[in-house]
Amino acid sequence: MVAVQQATDFTLLTHSDIAGAGRILLSITSGATAELEMEELTDITEYIQDKAGQQAEVIFGHSIDDKLEDGIRVTLIAACFSDN
């Protein structure tokens, strides 16, 4: 959850968070020794949905990278922000 929270709090351009995004692309990569369980994936996607809003379409994928060992990498792309 720390990696996901850091991804949602990171600001690169004009938006300070993902609230109001119409679409979210979420990639979660874990190391072989820190493979995520389904419950953890559910918690992460629910957290993202709550932050973005219930109107947001969230598409996620999960992969394993042995080089990460017990680490987790989260990549999040938010698009189609409302004008509100």
Rank of each mutant, 00 (worst) to 15 (best):
V74T: 05
S30N: 13
I18M: 03
F10K: 08
V2W: 12
T75M: 05
I24K: 00
E57V: 05
A79Y: 12
D17C: 11
I59A: 05
I59W: 08
I48L: 03
M38D: 15
E57N: 04
D83N: 07
D70T: 15
S82I: 10
A34T: 07
S63Y: 04
K67A: 14
S63L: 09
L12E: 13
E35D: 11
D65H: 14
E37L: 07
A79C: 13
L76R: 01
I44L: 04
Y47H: 08
A78Y: 03
A32E: 15
A79E: 13
L41I: 09
T33I: 04
N84L: 08
T29D: 04
Q5P: 06
R73C: 12
T45D: 00
K67F: 13
I18D: 01
I24S: 04
E40Y: 05
M1H: 14
Q6A: 08
E37S: 13
T75N: 09
Q54N: 13
Q6D: 10
G31N: 06
I77W: 11
E35K: 09
L25Y: 11
R23A: 12
E35Q: 10
M1T: 12
G22W: 00
T14N: 14
G22C: 02
M38K: 13
L41V: 13
Y47L: 03
Q49W: 12
D43S: 04
A21V: 02
